[in-house]
Design a protein around this nucleic acid. Structure first.
Lengths: 343, 343
DNA sequence: AATCGGTTGCAAACCGATTGGATTTCAACC
DNA sequence: GGTTGAAATCCAATCGGTTTGCAACCGATT
């Protein structure tokens, strides 16, 4: 097992001091004569020297690593966000450590601690904040600690601890989706909600109620089906809804995958969409375009959220002034899963 | 900006030497009296001390970071693999740095070098190897270097540089998919192939030819449409195929997303699937289940590939004996996008 | 020849841990 | 009471860089 060449090796071979070699490599502003510089650079090339980021991190007390906490990389919602983060990170010389929490408080906390031990320069929380009390207490302490230690923190949805944020208005997004259904004459509207313990779930359900209330429709808790943001969850939700005496005429889903699951389950039972039942999703993942019928949905700029979040983090780390909360727009995308209700 | 507590702080406060403190923290087998241990542990808890992984990495010359090079995290193919990697990594105390290369040789090379400077313990190449000559030359040199520096390397498809591998038989997978179509009476079969410069593309196209040859069907290069593994690519491929005088009666796609793009494009033109044209995909991503009709496809155990690859890497790093190449099985999943040809 | 300001380069401290080997402690034994 | 050896503890080198203070050197000016 051979060792990597060190800056000492370079210095020796170029017959300069380590300090000089270091200055050439980092082209610092300390003056170095052209001849010396050339000599060092030549040796660097010959030996294929590249400074150890580990050693450099220890000396400068800074790394260029940023941690990203996601629910599940395999969920298209997160994978789009991560891609946005990664692209901007790369442009700015950062590398990204991705951690899947599965939205489990303990896992998330452990990851955050580990990342801090690795001395990441910043941390991005993708996905909605958890609401668990113990989790929040610990997380707030950690965020405070990061503040003191100069570790940047950015949240990508509405989190419950103080951090710079880039988010859409989840409540309004679902309100708009639901209102759209109401405009089409629907008054008995089901809601596929997200997993418990998630702030986003809370907000989206509130948006649903807002829309109902604005239209003077009574809220029926039996029509709100808890889900898990996944395809199978959508299928199960339909089973639960069918257990009710009468199906709603429309369903607002708090994400696309569940909406698609619901669509498949409904079609399997011979129900036509949108003729028999209308469906609105949320996120606008790619597959909304190729299900049949294409899914009407409230678009969230996922990639952009990731990219913007990372951009904010970069600014934060450069000590630039930034908006504490950046709101991104959602947009209703009309496709073919909603129809005016008969009668 | 406050500093993190160091082991020196702990040692001082517990009135022991740094060495002793370190031994307690790592519970090394060097003997430490119960009383001292308790005292140190108490201080550790009080100060919330956790050793800096950076400093530890420098001292031990080892990190617990592993790098993963993927084409695009946002592609369900890769996101499933990454999830498998990450789960096993976590179980074994490793963290994962994800890098999107977009299959561009220069980007990939740069990432590998960066990761080596970060002193990752191992590297996983997800996705098929690139075939660019210059790239291969440089990559082989890098792999050799990693060998010497004891950095583990695992490839997850058939790569063109020497490394431990976990892969399916890409050639056979496409052969089997194509043969399935032939069994259903198709003889004029189109092929949606992958991007140029990719070993996997090569292998899969060969599998297509193998199947034709075995059935005594002449190979028609006009029926092989190059693609990009993406939804839009599938749509474009159909446009190109339609430019031919007569459409094939079936299409073998070298991945699912393109197959689905093709399906959408065909349906838009009023063609029925599988009545008018049959379709077989490859990968078995989730959406194959919810397109209409559900897509018959050759399943690749993506998550398992990632997980197994990471398991192999762990073994490699523990100096255990491992198989240099591990073959995983593909399986044809019959759904509803293939029908027996009329006549 | 002495002075001077600007270049250039060096030695050494430091970052925060690990670790081999030296040193101390202390109970048991002669 | 002195010796001994294992257990417990500590010292200091080391990992591979960055950075600062200081010294040497240079040609030009007085």
């Amino acid at each position: 097992m051979k060792k990597n060449p060190t800056i000492a090796d370079v210095a020796r071979k170029a017959r300069v001091s380590i300090a000089t070699a270091s200055r050439v490599v980092n082209n610092s502003d300390h003056p170095v004569s052209a001849a010396t510089r050339r000599r060092v650079l030549k040796v660097v090339a010959e030996m294929g020297f590249a400074p150890s980021e580990v050693a450099r991190a220890l000396a400068t007390r800074q790394t260029c690593m940023i941690g990203v906490i996601v629910g599940d990389t395999n969920d298209p919602y997160f994978s789009a966000i991560v891609r946005g983060i990664e692209d901007v990170a790369r442009e700015n010389g950062y590398i990204v450590i991705v951690c899947n929490s599965d939205r489990i408080p303990a896992v998330e906390l452990t990851y955050v601690r580990t990342l801090l031990n690795y001395r990441v320069r910043g941390l991005i929380f993708a996905g909605g904040g958890l609401t668990d009390e113990n989790y929040l207490r610990e997380m707030r302490a950690l965020v405070e600690q990061m503040e003191r230690r100069n570790v940047g923190v950015v949240g990508l949805s509405e989190h419950l601890f103080p951090a710079c944020e880039v988010t859409i208005d989840n409540r309004a997004a679902v309100r708009d989706g639901t209102s759209y259904l109401i405009q089409y004459g629907h008054r008995r509207i089901g809601m596929l909600s997200g997993p418990a313990g998630l702030n986003t779930t809370r907000l989206r359900t509130e948006g649903y109620r807002d829309a109902l209330q604005a239209a003077g429709i009574a809220f029926d808790p039996a029509l709100v089906i808890p889900g898990d943001f996944r395809f199978q969850g959508g299928i199960r939700a339909i089973e639960r809804l069918l257990a009710i005496d009468r199906l709603p005429t429309a369903i607002m889903s708090s994400n696309d995958e569940m909406a698609i699951g619901a669509m498949v389950a409904l079609k399997q039972r011979g129900l036509r969409i949108p003729t028999d039942i209308s469906l609105v999703g949320l996120d606008d993942i790619l597959s909304t375009q190729y299900v049949d019928p294409p899914l009407t949905t409230v678009q969230i700029p996922l990639y952009e959220m990731g990219a913007t979040g990372m951009r904010q983090l970069v600014r934060l780390l450069n000590d630039e002034e930034i908006e504490p909360v950046l709101w991104l727009n959602h947009t209703l995308i009309e496709r073919q899963s909603v129809s005016r209700i008969a009668g």
